[in-house]
Design a protein around this nucleic acid. Structure first.
Length: 184
DNA sequence: TAAGTGATTAGC
DNA sequence: CTAATCACTTAT
């Protein structure tokens, strides 16, 4: 399988969000174990809309969003959870795709263990230590492998969930009938 | 539906 | 410094 290049993430954020569906996210743990999961749900965030962390400019937390495409953005929320995003478009523009759910491909994995943005991070052992890494780097501990594109009719596009601002934007994508898609 | 939980941010 | 907010999950 081929690792996705930086070029893939340099497309428009909503395009990346949509095309990431069906791709395989891989995580190499410190003991050498490699976990894999199919991405089944994503959301797009760009700096023009107020629900994005980059909306107010380069704050200390959001600075990572302005880096080059393919950078991993991990943030801590509600005192207990991490969420991971992949930075998109060009350097200096704050945008990213939130990974909301994956379907674990490891043999003994529970299919519900990664059906939510914070659960997915827990499953893949993603913490703030990984904030800012380049997932297109050859030696990265997280990367995404290419896979067949999901057919247009299998992709559902709806409004984003769990946010309080700019709710009307239809920037959430998931695979129809995907068993690991998050709540609601 | 409610509440736990602490980093981040804006506003004094 | 303080207080409000938060792209969530789990258990009622």
């Amino acid at each position: 399988m081929k690792k996705l290049s930086r070029k893939f993430f340099e497309q428009k954020t909503v395009v990346v969000a949509k095309q990431l569906l069906g791709k395989i996210i891989c995580r190499k743990l410190s003991d050498g174990t490699v976990l894999k999961g199919k991405i089944v749900e994503t959301e797009a965030y760009t700096q023009e809309e107020e629900s994005c962390h980059a909306y107010k400019g380069k704050t200390k937390r959001a600075e990572v969003l302005f880096r080059q495409a393919g950078t991993l953005y991990v943030y801590f929320i509600y005192g207990m959870y991490y969420c991971s995003n992949i930075v998109t478009e060009h350097e200096g523009y704050g945008s990213a795709v939130l990974l909301r759910a994956i379907e674990p491909l490891n043999i003994s994995a529970d299919v519900k263990k990664a059906s939510g943005p914070a659960k997915l991070c827990k499953y893949l052992s993603v913490t703030k230590e990984l904030n800012g890494i380049d997932i297109t780097d050859k030696n990265s501990v997280i990367w995404i492998e290419d896979a067949e594109n999901i057919a247009e009719e299998e992709i559902v596009q709806t409004v984003r969930i769990g946010i309080t601002k700019a709710k009307e934007l239809p920037w959430r994508f998931y695979i129809r009938n995907g068993k690991c898609v998050s709540k609601k």
